[in-house]
């Protein structure tokens, strides 16, 4: 089984993240890059499926030179090879453009299954799986908390508020996963050593067959019109228990729509 896991490098979620005033883009240069958290679950699921079905896992990343660190980590976890789409002309591409690029590459390298984290911690749009499935003309099976493959039959549990739905589709397909699906492994030291010898193919914009005018910030279909910093945290509400503390706590939670 030919499994492709899409991996995005995002700014360290623990670091202070800012938007650049000149073009309203996320300032990625000043922060350490890490693999998007949910993508680690996608990698783990890819590795488990590959181990169970004698498959091969390819990591697909679009990003600047720095993204090679994340590719290295994914290969250290056990992926077999990687494709790195890297081109200055892609900088500032929005989700629609990114999906166009990734779909072109996926079409060329071929796949039985594409796995993604359900959303990234930076943009948090959660649309990439849907966009890729649409562009590739294959089923999208989203928010999977469990995945089973039997021949070309694909069965998942789709995480819902009330529990899960059982969803079936047939391969080839695109899956997005949620963190409930597994526990990502650590890269082993032998894995780190082995990763150095694993093939990483570099793909430029020209290689994708897309026109330079279709991608990048200038041609993006979406635009960040304005942004504002998050307001400072408000002081908490102190409720004094005068025998009715439970009622007041319940009222507060109800007021916040938690219950």
């Amino acid at each position: 089984m030919n499994i492709v896991v899409c991996v995005k490098q995002v700014p360290d979620t623990w670091a202070e993240r800012t938007l650049r005033p000149e073009d309203s883009r996320l300032d990625r240069a000043s922060v350490d890059g890490v693999i998007n958290e949910l993508d680690e679950y996608a990698i783990e699921e890819g590795l488990r499926l590959a181990e169970a079905h004698e498959g091969e896992v390819t990591i697909l990343t679009m990003g600047p030179d720095k993204a090679s660190e994340s590719i290295r980590k994914a290969l250290s976890m056990g992926a077999d090879k990687a494709v790195h789409v890297i081109d200055d002309g892609l900088a500032g591409s929005d989700a629609l453009q990114t999906s166009a690029v990734l779909a072109q590459v996926l079409g060329r390298i071929g796949f039985d299954l594409v796995i993604l984290g359900a959303e990234s911690t930076d943009a948090r749009m959660g649309v990439m799986a849907a966009m890729l499935a649409e562009r590739l003309g294959v089923p999208q099976v989203s928010l999977a908390s469990k995945v089973e493959v039997d021949g070309t039959a694909l069965r998942i549990h789709r995480q819902r508020d009330y529990g899960y739905d059982k969803v079936e589709a047939s391969l080839p397909a695109v899956i997005s996963v949620v963190e409930k699906i597994n526990e990502p492994r650590y890269p082993s030291f032998k894995g780190i050593m082995a990763a150095k010898k694993k093939p990483v193919e570099t793909v430029t914009l020209a290689d994708t067959g897309l026109d330079a005018g279709q991608v990048g910030l200038a041609a993006a279909a979406t635009e960040v019109v304005s942004f504002a910093n998050r307001p400072p945290r408000q002081a908490g509400t102190v409720v004094k228990d005068e025998g009715d503390g439970g009622t007041k706590a319940a009222e507060f939670l109800a007021g916040q729509k938690f219950i």
Partner: peptide
């Protein structure tokens, strides 16, 4: 090196 940094991050995470 990137390997050494990955070792650091892995042991820290563990």
């Amino acid at each position: 090196s990137s390997d050494e940094a990955l070792v650091r991050d892995t042991v820290r995470a563990f």
